[in-house]
């Protein structure tokens, strides 16, 4: 009964998801693979005068201009050095935005219910950007919420800090 098998697979897929695990300052973070288009090495990032401080600059991604975010600055955990960086190209609502990462560890398949909500241990501004936390190979991984990483609220907060 091939139909039954398909149905079962579909159910199974619903309960599982793929995530890309990467490191920033040694700490593991993750993003749902649905939001990740590719990972590219970028050496010529052009800074944009007047842009929010967490924007490293813009790059030429095969003829398209894409903004690159200094993920560490965005998350408030340091700063990325500019010369040569690894950029994770994320697709958020049809928009392409690059996020700097130190290294990409793996693509992992996890059970959807393995993601637990974050506790109040972290401040609210940071929790907003985090979908949840999960345990992978004995380590805690923070799963980032792609839709909130760069939403209007984040931008406004960043701009008000600047002025």
């Amino acid at each position: 009964m091939p139909q039954v098998i398909e149905e079962k697979q579909e159910q199974k897929e619903k309960q599982e998801r793929n995530i890309v695990v990467f490191r920033l300052n040694g700490t593991p973070f993750a993003l749902d693979i649905q939001n990740v288009q590719e990972i590219v090495q970028q050496s010529d990032i052009v800074s944009v005068p007047g842009a929010p401080p967490f924007i490293l600059g813009i790059v030429n991604l095969r003829g398209r201009i894409m903004a690159v975010v200094d993920t560490k600055r965005l998350l408030g955990i340091g700063e990325t050095s500019t010369d040569k960086v690894l950029v994770m190209v994320a697709q958020i609502d049809e928009r392409l935005v690059g996020f700097t990462v130190d290294e990409v560890e793996q693509v992992a398949r996890i059970a959807s219910d393995a993601v637990e909500p974050v506790s109040n241990l972290i401040s609210s501004e940071e929790t907003r950007k985090i979908e949840g936390v999960l345990r992978l190979g004995g380590k805690l991984v923070l799963l980032l919420d792609a839709n909130r990483l760069l939403d209007e609220e984040t931008l406004e907060a960043a701009m008000s800090q600047q002025h």
Binding site: V48, P49, G50, A51, P52, I55, I58, R64, I65, M66, A67, I92, R95, L96, V97, L150, L155
Partner: peptide, 12 residues
């Protein structure tokens, strides 16, 4: 070419 999100509002 447009600067793209989130730089689309930059006035300069």
């Amino acid at each position: 070419k447009p600067l793209g999100y989130p730089l689309h509002n930059l006035r300069s």
